[in-house]
């Protein structure tokens, strides 16, 4: 009798753990199917001319994504220029002076922005920049991406500032160095690697965003005309091509997706490997 019960419990044990293992395998399989499919379809359509040419007029086969890649780089770069200082300096405030009510409010606001869907941030930029200026612009796209980026940079920077040993700071203060110099010349430089890693993670996140760009940067089939005009971006090109009825554009969408995935995943993986090395495997 006991034997039978024990056997049943052991069978349940084995069964449930096989099930959970199957879940894990399913999760991993999804990832590898996706990556494999993109490489399979993308590599077939990818060549040098695709990377260096402008899109052809609608209906004509061929053409490339040169303007989209340059546009993406420019939009993301401006977003980083706008967002990184706010994120890093805000984190310095939180770490150095932020254990009060103001710090609580800043943390709350950052969490709110962090949880907001990117499309809502895009609507924000649309109302703030596109509507008053009455034109779609790369500037509005960058502003939207900067808002998405700020809370990510803020949080990761604060975390890395916390890892700086107190003895370093105390050594500086003991030598009579003013506090602001200690922060700028000792604390921030010694956390610099981690801060850069956080920035890299944020940049690779916003590089793949398309929702906030649809009605801000808007897209463009030619070289852009400066920051105040519509600009093309890689995710926008993929979106337009994927929902189009043209066979050739579908092929190009796969190739563009492969380029985007390569860039985004390279940034993401590099950042997480660096982070893992920096602060132990447990919270990488």
């Amino acid at each position: 009798m006991t034997d039978a019960r024990l056997r049943r419990r052991k069978i349940v044990n084995g069964l449930m753990f096989s099930l959970t293992a199957a879940c894990t395998i399913a999760c991993l399989a999804v990832l590898f199917v996706i990556l494999g499919y993109i490489v399979y379809h993308g590599a077939a359509a990818l060549d040098w001319s695709f990377l260096t040419r402008l899109p052809k007029p609608v209906g004509e086969p061929g053409g490339g994504i040169a303007n989209a890649m340059v546009g993406s780089a420019k939009i993301v770069a401006l977003a980083a220029v706008l967002g990184v200082p706010v994120g890093v300096l805000g984190a310095v405030y939180l770490h150095e002076f932020g254990h009060n009510r103001i710090g609580f409010v800043i943390r709350y606001a950052a969490d709110l922005l962090n949880g907001m869907p990117s499309i809502v941030i895009g609507v924000f930029a649309y109302g703030l920049i596109v509507l008053p200026m009455k034109r779609f612009s790369a500037l509005a796209g960058s502003a939207a991406l900067a808002v998405i980026m700020i809370p990510i940079v803020l949080r990761s920077t604060e975390e890395f500032l916390r890892l700086v040993p107190a003895s370093l700071r105390e050594a500086g203060l003991a030598l009579g160095v003013p506090r602001w110099k200690v922060i700028l010349l000792v604390v921030i430089p010694s956390a610099w690697g981690g801060i850069l890693t956080g920035i890299l993670l944020a940049v690779s996140r916003i590089a793949g965003e398309s929702a906030p760009l649809i009605f801000t940067a808007f897209g463009n089939r030619f070289w852009d005309n400066g920051w105040l005009n519509p600009m093309s971006a890689l995710p926008l090109t993929i979106y337009t091509y994927a929902i189009s009825p043209y066979e050739d554009w579908h092929r190009q969408a796969w190739a563009a997706a492969m380029v985007l995935v390569l860039v985004v995943l390279a940034g993401n993986v590099l950042a997480r490997l660096l982070m893992r090395g920096g602060r132990g495997a447990s919270n990488a």
Partner: peptide, 18 residues
Amino acid sequence: CCFFIEILAAVPSVVLGL
């Protein structure tokens, strides 16, 4: 495994749409 599963979170939304 967790590292790989988190890569899934980094795949851009538009690519998953494709």
